[in-house]
Design a protein around this nucleic acid. Structure first.
Lengths: 187, 187
DNA sequence: AACGTTGTATACCTACCGGTATAGTTACCT
DNA sequence: AGGTAACTATACCGGTAGGTATACAACGTT
């Protein structure tokens, strides 16, 4: 793990995370972040070094928060392996109520085309973990061809995330979940 | 329809479309677009009025190109209604070979959080048309509960689009198609 | 009592952004 | 021949971007 953040650094990261997600990465400036965090630009640069590193820290933090939240949600709402698998869809639906602008990682990828950007590792790690988690649950649920089903469920979740953002399908989360049931049971 | 474009205007739109998609909207400046199109900024502004309107024109043009290409592909590769439905997945896979940065509309949405942006209408129209087209095909294929299946296939396609961008699933397109078959046949 | 850390305050830098103004040129239309 | 639409060339505008420099005030540690 990286060095612990100072109080001011934590405030900066909180504000930046909020703004990067809701306003977009490129449209938010470090000056505004510092001001809203009640901090000087100097402090911001002492803590993070550059805007790009601040972006990477935002993505890492978001991923960490998501993982903890998801695992906790699944454990609290399901007992059997199959229930756990389906609970991930409920978790996603719930998460989106407070995160209406879709997947922060997909959005970040859209704004950071350069593969060299330090944030890319965090994005890749997030997606990889998500797929691994689904695979782990399909295996535990005794699904035959767990790998295939996990991938398909992953696609459904990515799709539901994107579709909700466009506000086109009001029931996309429910739709994804019921489609998931079909895919699980037909394997 | 809008007024026809002048040759210089068309060149600007071509360059802008290429750059907006591959580099991102906010990271590309009008100065660079004009230079690469062999055109003065004055000409660019005479033709489009503002960068925001140029962005909207890019999205409208991309949507138009996609629709024509998709319909043509489906007609050339399928004869029965069910084949047509499945051909949309092949079309998407083929399209992505020349469009590796995912859905231009999802990406644009990530970069344009303000609902007031003129590009939003084009994004919404694109997604709406896509869902309508799928619904039309499911109905023609005689699928029971065509509306539900159309929505689910839409989710799969959105997911496959996003997953391919992340380069996580190499077979996401094939996976989406076979999942679609399961969903269609189980209805 | 001295010190490194964490922080504030402020001013500044270069670079580029979207957008405008002015003047002059080509070419087609009738 | 005259006019208009399309276009080039160049210079400029205010604003803001990311990032740096300097000076100074708390602070807990040892």
């Amino acid at each position: 793990m990286s060095t612990r953040l100072t109080p001011a650094g934590a405030r900066v990261l909180d504000v930046a995370s909020e703004l990067f997600y809701s306003e977009g990465i490129n449209t938010v400036g470090v000056e505004g972040i510092a001001r809203m965090a009640g901090v000087t630009k100097k402090t911001l640069y002492d803590c993070f070094g550059s805007k790009d590193e601040l972006i990477a820290a935002y993505l890492r933090g978001r991923d960490e928060r998501w993982r903890g939240w998801l695992i906790d949600f699944v454990e609290r709402h399901a007992t059997t392996p199959r229930q756990r698998l389906l609970a991930t869809f409920d978790a996603l639906a719930q998460w989106q109520r407070n995160n209406p602008r879709g997947c922060g990682f997909v959005n970040a990828l859209a704004e950071l085309p350069s593969t060299a950007h330090p944030g890319h590792a965090a994005i890749a790690a997030h997606k990889r973990w998500m797929l691994d988690y689904l695979r782990q649950l399909t295996v535990a649920a005794g699904v035959s061809d767990a790998e295939t089903v996990a991938r398909r469920l992953f696609l459904l979740q990515e799709g539901a995330l994107a579709a909700t953002t466009g506000e086109l399908l009001s029931d996309s989360q429910q739709q994804a979940k019921s489609a998931a049931m079909v895919l699980i049971d037909s394997s």
